[in-house]
């Protein structure tokens, strides 16, 4: 309610600004999913940024599909209200025409501290995790699975398995199926869907749980409903830190990065870029933020401040980062409908 009012206020201020050409907005509006991520961004970055720059950050809680629906409406009417939005990898391709290009080389801190690949033309990495294989270390004591081929090997690694039926499983699962079938990481895309689904047919009878939410994947690990499952790395991290006997195998985990993107013609594009630069350069913010949300930022001055043992639980830890699959969002974005239909039909069979 308060945010809506503020937003209207900004819209008004913007109108005044456009008419008068004098008043400069000293606020930026950032659309993110609410809850933990919003609260921690606010605590570790929004408020320090406001203190350092005088530009106030106004968080706007919204789910991602809803956010895009509104952003596209705003682009059509020309009345843009968000400065920064939350984007997934495919969004950077699919929504490219309403997104401002990030001047990666002109932002000093980004140039200095960003991990390779973190700054894309249409968005910059906020947090990175992975769709990672997570297994019970008691069940597989002395015989630990390492790769997706091991996930498929039900004789050597017996036990109930879990896979996601949510998010981007329509390309996550064909991708890991191909890895299990022996395709090299570099040769995955374009995905050979016939081969991938033939491989998925093999594992289908062994899947005890098709999990639907991040909460559920944690619950099935804690309750021993599965011995091995694909999980969001941040969710697995919390289960491990809470003392459950689980570990992550990073080989072939799919990089899952949440991006910050800037809308074209946003009310305060300059402020948005300044925030991005601040985000990458703020050494104080990162450690606490990373520990609170369970996902690592892509600034090199971030994760390295944590104890070495703890760093290993995050996707951007160098030894893990080089094992990740880097999805080809260009191809995925172009084949979205086909991927979805194939997935839905396969699962319902």
């Amino acid at each position: 309610m308060k945010q809506t009012r503020k937003l209207t206020g900004i819209a008004l201020a913007l109108t005044v600004a456009t008419v008068g050409q004098a008043v400069r907005a000293d606020e930026i509006v950032i659309a993110t999913t609410g809850g933990l991520m919003r609260n921690m961004m606010e605590e570790y970055f929004y408020l320090p940024f406001a203190e350092a720059s005088g530009t106030e950050v106004i968080p706007f809680d919204i789910e991602v599909p809803d956010q895009w629906a509104r952003a596209e409406g705003m682009a059509r009417t020309g009345d843009v209200e968000f400065d920064i939005v939350t984007a997934t990898g495919p969004d950077l391709v699919g929504k490219a025409e309403i997104l401002e290009t990030i001047p990666c080389d002109d932002l000093a801190n980004v140039k200095e501290y960003a991990l390779p690949g973190a700054c894309q033309p249409k968005g910059i990495a906020r947090t990175t995790g992975g769709m990672v294989m997570t297994y019970n270390t008691d069940t597989f004591a002395g015989n630990e699975p390492r790769t997706w081929a091991d996930f498929w090997d039900t004789e050597k690694f017996p036990g109930p398995r879990g896979l996601p039926d949510t998010g981007d499983r329509d390309w996550w699962l064909p991708t890991v199926a191909l890895l299990a079938d022996g395709v090299a990481k570099e040769d995955l895309y374009p995905l050979d869907l016939d081969r991938a689904y033939a491989k998925l047919d093999e594992i289908k009878p062994h899947i005890a749980v098709w999990w639907k939410t991040g909460n559920q994947v944690q619950q099935i690990m804690r309750d021993n409903e599965v011995a091995i499952t694909m999980s969001y790395s941040g969710r697995a991290l919390k289960v491990i830190q809470d003392g459950s006997p689980f570990a992550m195998a990073w080989d072939g985990a799919i990089r899952d990065t949440g991006y910050l993107a800037v809308l074209k013609n946003s009310p305060n594009t300059e402020g948005a870029m300044k925030f991005i630069d601040f985000f990458y350069g703020s050494a104080e913010g990162h450690p606490g933020f990373i520990q609170a949300v369970g996902y690592a930022t892509s600034s090199t001055i971030g994760l390295s401040q944590l104890p070495e043992e703890e760093q290993k639980l995050y996707a951007t830890y160098p030894a893990n980062y080089e094992l990740l699959v880097d999805p080809d969002f260009e191809w995925i974005g172009a084949h979205r409908d086909e991927l979805r239909e194939r997935w839905t039909n396969w699962l319902l069979q």
Binding site: D165, W210, L348
Partner: peptide, 10 residues
């Protein structure tokens, strides 16, 4: 069905 079933029993 959403909570106790699997997609195979959609």
């Amino acid at each position: 069905p959403a909570l106790l079933g699997s997609p195979k029993e959609m």
